[in-house]
Simulated assay, not measured.
Amino acid sequence: MAAVVTVSALDAGHLTLPERLFVTDADPDLRATVPSLSFLVRHTAPSGATTAVLFDLGVKRNIDGYTPAQRAHIAQRQPVVVSPDCADSLRRGHSPTATDGEQQQLLLLDPTTDVDVVILSHVHWDHVGTPSDFGRAVFAVGAGTLNLLRHGAGPLYPAALFNADELPAARTLEFPPAPASPYDSHTAEHAPAPTPNTPTMAALLPPTIRYPWRWEPLPANDTDDPAFPAALDLFGDGSVRVVDSPGHLFGHVNLLLRTAPRRYVYLGGDCCHDPRILRGEKGIALYDDGCGGLRSVHVDTGAARRTLGRIARFADGHGDGDGDVEVEVVVAHDAVWRDRNRHRFWPGTL
């Protein structure tokens, strides 16, 4: 039987987005407060060993933990809601039937001791959360991320927009660079260099995780155009695949999770900020980049469109060459999905 995982959504803060910066044909005055979702993924090996993986950490509960340039940006995204944050949601979860007093007494998971791995889709301010809450976890990020945090990446992504000390240096590994660059030449020239993992850091990974990491096309067969050109089998059993998902920010990755033999959950991070784009109802908005040109919220709009196209095709049930596959795609800032799926938040499951 195919290996599967359990997945639970977590509240990890909210922020407010002006529609005009994200979708075409937008209401110029509409601003929507949306979640920054985190997800708990639990994998049980044949030996019985359970590995707890977090995907994204949402918003910091202490805004003062951001750099001055980040706080200036956050001021444009108000209202921002910081509670509950990811750690608090892990501790107490969400129970639709519990009273406030009962909810406060819950202690479901201790973020300090019960989380093994944290995977960040990328390191924008609304996804990095409070890494110090996860004192035992190994962090895993896309190629070039550590360099990006230290030095930025080109004029639109200066170092001031990132915190060089965001992640624990001794416990943070990078996924390897994907085999081929998906970026246009202008974007590629600003791509941050990857940081090699040391054997000491790799030794911190749970023994259930397959390492060294390597990218493979998915599906790994003779098709000319695989569903995803670069996917990494985290546990070596097909239950969790890290998907190289270029476009939004350098190092952006997604997760493809098998939750039943013929059912997948695809965690899309910031592949788009509005699910209507994924459904083809809206396009990616372009706006003045302040340098005499146009830009979108993505570092490479063309690459982002190509990633969205691959996700959409996979979600249509063609991921393994057979239409009898259910795929649910969840992006980080989907307020409608959150409101409709409260029963699937931890300790509930997707």
Rank of each mutant, 00 (worst) to 15 (best):
T24W: 09
G319N: 05
V53K: 07
G293I: 04
P84I: 04
A170R: 07
A160F: 09
S89K: 04
T99S: 15
L10C: 02
W346G: 00
V240A: 03
V82E: 11
A203Y: 03
V115I: 15
D339H: 09
P28T: 11
H186F: 13
P219E: 10
R214W: 07
A193R: 13
F22Y: 15
R20M: 15
V7A: 12
T195F: 08
V330E: 03
H94W: 15
L15C: 14
H186K: 11
R214T: 15
C272F: 14
S38V: 11
T208F: 05
V331T: 11
H43D: 04
T67C: 05
L256V: 11
G251V: 04
A303Q: 03
A312L: 00
D85G: 14
G247P: 03
E166Q: 12
P246Q: 01
A12W: 12
H94K: 07
E216F: 12
H318N: 11
C272V: 15
P96Y: 14
A32P: 04
G268W: 13
I311G: 00
L37D: 08
V240E: 01
R310E: 05
A312I: 01
E216I: 10
L108R: 07
V243M: 08
S132Q: 13
F39P: 00
H273M: 10
E281G: 03
L108H: 06
G293L: 00
R241D: 12
A2F: 12
P261N: 12
P68L: 02
A159T: 02
T349Q: 09
V327M: 10
S185L: 13
K282T: 03
E326C: 05
G238T: 05
S296C: 01
L156T: 12
A69R: 11
P347W: 01
G247K: 04
R210H: 13
T16S: 15
P46M: 06
A193Y: 11
D224W: 08
G302I: 06
F175H: 02
G101A: 15
T349D: 02
T145E: 12
Q105W: 02
A52H: 15
D224S: 12
D339P: 00
V325R: 04
N62G: 13
P194D: 02
G144R: 05
R338G: 00
V240C: 06
L234F: 14
A87W: 14
G268S: 14
F134D: 08
D165R: 07
F314I: 00
G309I: 06
G93P: 07
L149Y: 09
R262N: 13
V80F: 06
W215P: 00
